[in-house]
Amino acid sequence: MKQQLKSLTQTQGFAVLTLVLGILVIWYIAALLMNGNQMINMLERTGQSWTYIQVLQGAYSIQRPPLPVPHQVAMELYQSVFNQAVTSRRSLVYHSMITLESTLLGFALGSLLGILIAVGIVHNRTLDASLMPWVIASQTVPILAIAPIVVVVLGSMNLTGVLPKAMISMYLSFFPVVIGMVKGLRSADKLHTELMITYNASAQQMFWKLRWFSAQPYLFASLKIAISAALVGAIVAELPTGAQGGLGARLLSGSYYGQTVQIWAALVISALLGWALITLVGMAERLVLNRRGLRG
């Protein structure tokens, strides 16, 4: 029994669970301090006398708290996910769908662009010398700063809705794919490459029969980074478009009206979304690589 207990405490799940519990405890204490202060201020302003029990109750239930506690956020999540029609503007599912749409479109476009650029760079020395430095430089530019402009410019060319946001996701997600694919396409086994040369394989055959497969593990590693970058891009791109919907718009409107619980709920949903998307790519990776006998 004691042995079992000891081995249980050494598992990863136990460690993660303990830390999460610890964070929750700290969260509640911090909320008590931050919200309690505001509660005391509020009561003193109205000239009431206050007791500690009043403050304790108030700290976990006031409207628009500086730091909402987890059960408040969970309530808000439950309310806005299950108790609203999916098409309602109050439903987080509605907003998540809008964000998800531009994330996925941007991710698809960005991955495609990234693969094409990588293929060009690997096959053409001039492109390698001229384009590669700019691909790297493009990421030292704070891309998200361009987000409002891209949205405004494309909007004035009558391109509204999902496409401008997808463009920003695309810009963020093409980079890891280019870097990963260039490395992957060049990582073909030397013996295999020489074998292909002795078979007098053309560049095309070399690509489809050897390089494409050597690049796959690198491609999936890049896709995981790319899809979370695409989600960030979509959320930030929704900030300047205002009230059109999406998790970013939800964050902005929450910050305008001081609805802290709403902000936290949107944050939790976007975190879950990011985690789910990466898990999906990971599953695809295992599916493809397992078939080739590689461990995913």
Partner: peptide, 16 residues
Amino acid sequence: FMASIPIIGIAPIMVM
């Protein structure tokens, strides 16, 4: 897990 989520979303909270 934190690396996979859009941390930028905490910006409105920090401003508050």
